[in-house]
Write a protein that binds this DNA or RNA. Structure first.
Lengths: 347, 347
DNA sequence: ATAAAAAATGTGTTCGAACACATTGATATT
DNA sequence: AATATCAATGTGTTCGAACACATTTTTTAT
C-alpha cells in the first residue's frame, strides 16, 4: 500500500502540486477539467494527507491552562495532577505547553482569582474542574467571549459553552453501587446513603449518585431494602454515626457517595457484629487500606487521572492533527475490590 | 516557555547547526571547546527535539502484520479485530500500514501457513495472538532471525524473543473471581471450576486462572468452600452438567475460566432453586444477555479490544516517535456487572 | 616553509503540506 | 492590433531535524 503525496498526485494528474493543493483545500481558481481530474484521482487513491508534515508546517506553540483544586488541600485531586503531568511529558516535545493552576476547593474566591490570572495569559484552551457550579458558569462565559476553548472533567455542568467534557454517568454510577449492594447485603435490611464532604459543595455529584442508587433498589421486583439518607460534614460524622450504630438497628450496608468513605469505614470497624457492607468512591490510599482488609467491600473508581489525561489528549490531538473533539466522553465506571485495585492504581 | 530549535541553539552557541547536530547525536568531530559550549547550552535550555520534524524526516512506510484467530469462526476475537481496525484508522495517515491475517484457531496448520505468508512480506513488526503455545514459539524464532519485532497479546508465553506483551495477570484474574465468589456465595458450599472450550487448546490461560482462584479461596482464614474442577468440551457440557445438577448437591457457585460462560448459564437457568452464582469471562453479546437478567453475576473483562489497540499503538509510537516499548504491559482487570457493562462495550 | 592529511565546522538538501508569489494563457477593452 | 484584466497554473519557500557534502582550519610530515 503505497503512500501517495501531493506531488505524486500532481504528476499522475499532469498538473502542478499547487493545483492539487487548491483542489484539496477548495480554494477555487481551478478549471473544471483539472478539478474533475484531480478530484477523481484523490478519491480513487483515497488520498490521506501526511498529518506529520501538515503539523510541522503549522508549527505553533499551543498553550493549555489547567485549573484544578489544590491536591495539597484535598488529596482526592492528586491523581488528577498526575494525569496532567503525564500529558505534559507526552506533549512537551510536540509544541504544546501545559500550565497548572491550583485553587482552594473550599474557597470560591480563590477559584475566581485563579481564573482571572489564567485569562490574562490568553491560552488556547483551559481545562477547568468545576467544583463550584455557579462560579464555573460565570467564568466559562468569559472564556467563550475570548475564544478560548473550555474543557471540563468530573462535572458535566450543563455543557453550555463547553467544548468537551470527560467524565462518567453519575446516575449509572449510583446504580452500579446499588446492584453490588443487592448482591452482598441480606434482604430486608436497612442501607444507609451517606453524603460526606468537608465543606458544602455546590456541585450535583452526590445527588445524582443517590438518585441512581435509589432508583435501582426501589424498582426491584419485590422492594427489599429500607433506604435512609444522611448528609454529613466530616466534623459531625464521628459522633452522629457512632450514635446511630450504638442504638439497636438493622443497618447492613452503607453507600458513601464521595471519596471520604475511609472515615466511615474507620467508625464501622468498631461494630464488627453488625457485619455492615461498605461501598464508596475512589482509590485514595486510605480507602485502599480498608479495601485490602475487606473493611470496605467495593470502591467505584471515578478515574480522575484518566479523565484529566484524556481531556488534555483530546485537546492536543485537536491542535496538532486537527482531530475532532468529542463533545462528551463518558468513561467506563470501574468496580474495584481487594484483588483488582492494583491494576488501576498503577495506571 | 519558548521552544528552542537547533538553529536557535546554534546561534546562541555561535556555531553552525551542523555542529549542534553532531553534539546531539554524539557523532564526534567536534572540538572540545564547542562540545562543552553546546552541551551546556542544551542542558540549560533543556532542549527537546521537535518530534514531528524528526518523524517527518525519517519518513518511511512502516508495515505491521496482525495475526489472529478468525472472528468469523470464534466471535470471541471480534473485539480484537475492532481494536486493530481502530489502530488502522488512527495511524493510516502517519505512514503506518497494518494488515490483518486470520487463522483457524482449531487448526495449528492454518496458523503456521498464515505465518509463512506474513514472513514473505518481511514486515517491520508482527502482532501474534499465541493460542498455540508450541507453534508460536517456533515462529517467533524465525521472526527474530529476520529482525522482525514480535508483539503478543493475551498470552505471555515465556516472553522469549518478544518485544512487548500486552495482557493481564491471569493468576490475579482468578483471585478476583474468587474474592467475588466469596462475597456472593454462602459459606461451606461447593464451587465448581469449569474449563470450557470448543477444542483442546495448548495455551495456559485456564490453568493460571484456576490457580489464582484456588489460591485465594484455600487461604481464607477458615477455609470455607469445597472446590471442584472439571474440564469440558463444549459438546459434552450439556449432558454432563445436567447430570451433575440433577443429583442432590450443594453447588452454589460456578467459575467458568473462558468466555463460553453463557452456555453454562443457559443450563443453570433450568435449576433456579439451586440459586447458583456464576462468574465468567468477557463481554460477548451472549454473555451480556445473561448478565442483564442476573443469570450471570459477574463477568471479568479481558478487554481484548484494548489489548490489541494498545499493542499496535506502542509499535506505532516506537516507529514514529522513537518511544520506548514497554516489555510487558498489564492491563487492569475489569469487574463487570449488569449495571456497568455499557461503558466497556462502547469503548 | 610547503604540501598533504586530518580534524573541525559550515552549507545545502530532503521529508510533505501549505501558502505566498510568479508566470502563463485567455478574454475583454480601447 | 495592442494593452489591460483576470482566471488558471506553476514555482519557490517555510516548518525543524537529519544527514550528505563542501569548505575552512589545524596538525603532521617532508
Amino acid at each position: 500500500m503505497k503512500k501517495y503525496t501531493i506531488k505524486d498526485i500532481a504528476e499522475l494528474a499532469g498538473v502542478s502540486k499547487g493545483t492539487v493543493d487548491r483542489v484539496i483545500h477548495k480554494r477555487g481558481k481551478v478549471s473544471p477539467a483539472a478539478l474533475e481530474k484531480v478530484t477523481k484521482l484523490l478519491e480513487e487513491i483515497d488520498y490521506q494527507p501526511n498529518l506529520i508534515a501538515r503539523s510541522l508546517k503549522n508549527t505553533k506553540n499551543y498553550h493549555i491552562c489547567v485549573i484544578q483544586p489544590d491536591p495539597k488541600i484535598d488529596p482526592y485531586w492528586q491523581p488528577c495532577t498526575n494525569g496532567v503531568n503525564d500529558a505534559i511529558n507526552e506533549y512537551n516535545s510536540f509544541g504544546i505547553t501545559i500550565d497548572s493552576y491550583y485553587f482552594d476547593h473550599t474557597d470560591t474566591r480563590s477559584f475566581l482569582e485563579v481564573n482571572k490570572t489564567v485569562l490574562k495569559q490568553l491560552p488556547d484552551a483551559v481545562l477547568i474542574t468545576p467544583v463550584f457550579h455557579k462560579e464555573s458558569i460565570e467564568v466559562i462565559k468569559i472564556y467563550n467571549a475570548n475564544n478560548i476553548i473550555v474543557s471540563t472533567i468530573n462535572d458535566p455542568l450543563e455543557l453550555n459553552g463547553i467544548t468537551n467534557y470527560v467524565g462518567q454517568d453519575l446516575i449509572q454510577s449510583g446504580r452500579i453501587a446499588a446492584r453490588l449492594m443487592e448482591m452482598i447485603v441480606p434482604k430486608n435490611r436497612t442501607i444507609l446513603i451517606i453524603h460526606l464532604d468537608e465543606v458544602f459543595n455546590n456541585s450535583i455529584h452526590m445527588q445524582l449518585k443517590e438518585k441512581g442508587f435509589k432508583n435501582y433498589l426501589e424498582r426491584l421486583p419485590n422492594s427489599k431494602f429500607n433506604l435512609k439518607t444522611c448528609s454529613l460534614q466530616q466534623t459531625d460524622l464521628d459522633k452522629k454515626l457512632h450514635d446511630l450504630l450504638k442504638k439497636p438497628n438493622d443497618i447492613s450496608g452503607i453507600f458513601v457517595t464521595t471519596s471520604k468513605v475511609y472515615s466511615v469505614a474507620n467508625i464501622v470497624k468498631d461494630f464488627p457484629d453488625l457485619e455492615i457492607k461498605i461501598i464508596g468512591y475512589d482509590l485514595l490510599d486510605e480507602n485502599i487500606k480498608y479495601l485490602k482488609n475487606n473493611a470496605i467491600d467495593f470502591l467505584i473508581n471515578q478515574n480522575p487521572k484518566h479523565q484529566a489525561y484524556l481531556c488534555i489528549t483530546q485537546l492536543a490531538e485537536y491542535f496538532l492533527f486537527d482531530k475532532k473533539i468529542p463533545r462528551q466522553k463518558l468513561l467506563p465506571i470501574d468496580i474495584i475490590n481487594s484483588e483488582n485495585f492494583d491494576g488501576y492504581t498503577h495506571n
